[in-house]
């Protein structure tokens, strides 16, 4: 049995999750807390991958990162680098499809506590940086973690956009969902079942752990004496 799809999937989803987490938190803070013209439109664009078929996202990414695409041609000219048909392309696909989940979770969790808690810290002389790390981030953390797990799960399960931008290259861009599809295609049911069971196990434990953890944490600040 070749376990490359497992490691490849964990690598791609892991890297994508880290990037999405940072981007999601930054965007949620900047966009949710400030009013500017075009805010609703920007938000709609950021959330769009949530409702679009992954093939549409993949098509868009192919256009952007293709040899003649606006980003692809720059990468090719400046760094002599192509992301199409590489695992990096799969990371980009995972980032784009999972970003809305992180963004929504982050936005909700930064609105989930009383703004005056931050204001109180400001009146005590704390800098914006200090308030973010000591007040906002810890208070938003349960929600951020939920977003993190959802992001990872979504990135792990990404299929359509990944296939379009990264293609199916065994041992290079063959993530678990792709391995399942092509195993079924080629009649290799045993391999398909193996990967189906493993991805169900990963997803199930992630959600189970998340529910257990958030239940414990909600109790922490609300239970009485």
């Amino acid at each position: 049995m070749n376990y490359t799809p497992l490691f490849l999937s964990l690598k791609i989803a892991g890297i994508a999750t880290c990037i999405v987490f940072v981007l999601g938190v930054i965007f949620a803070r900047l966009i949710a807390r400030n009013n500017f013209p075009g805010k609703r439109i920007l938000e709609a664009i950021l959330l769009l991958p949530l409702v679009l078929p992954p093939t549409v996202v993949g098509f868009g990414l192919l256009y952007l990162f293709g040899k003649n695409g606006p980003i692809g041609s720059l990468l090719l000219n400046w760094f002599d680098y192509q992301v199409i048909f590489t695992w990096v392309g799969a990371v980009i696909a995972a980032i784009v499809v999972s970003f809305p989940l992180m963004y929504q979770s982050a936005q909700a969790s930064f609105q989930n506590y009383d703004r005056n808690i931050e204001n109180a810290a400001f009146t005590m002389g704390a800098s914006k940086f200090k308030v973010f790390w000591t007040i906002s981030f810890p208070l938003a953390w349960p929600g951020l973690l939920a977003g993190l797990v959802l992001t990872f799960a979504r990135a792990l399960g990404e299929f359509g956009a990944t296939l379009m931008i990264a293609g199916y290259i065994p041992n290079q861009t063959e993530t678990i969902p792709l391995a399942i599809y092509f195993a079924v295609e080629s009649g290799n049911t045993d391999a398909a079942v193996f990967w189906v069971v493993s991805i169900i196990a990963i997803g199930f434990s992630a959600i189970l752990w998340l529910n257990w953890w958030s239940g414990k944490n909600i109790l922490k600040f609300t239970s009485d004496k």
């Binding site: 009383d114 005056n116 808690i117 204001n119 109180a120 810290a121 009146t123 002389g125 007040i135 600040f221």
Partner: peptide
């Protein structure tokens, strides 16, 4: 941060 004004909020706004 630089005003040096103490503010007691209605719901206290203690850090939970």
């Amino acid at each position: 941060q630089k005003r040096n004004i103490g503010y007691l909020f209605q719901d206290y706004a203690l850090f939970p």
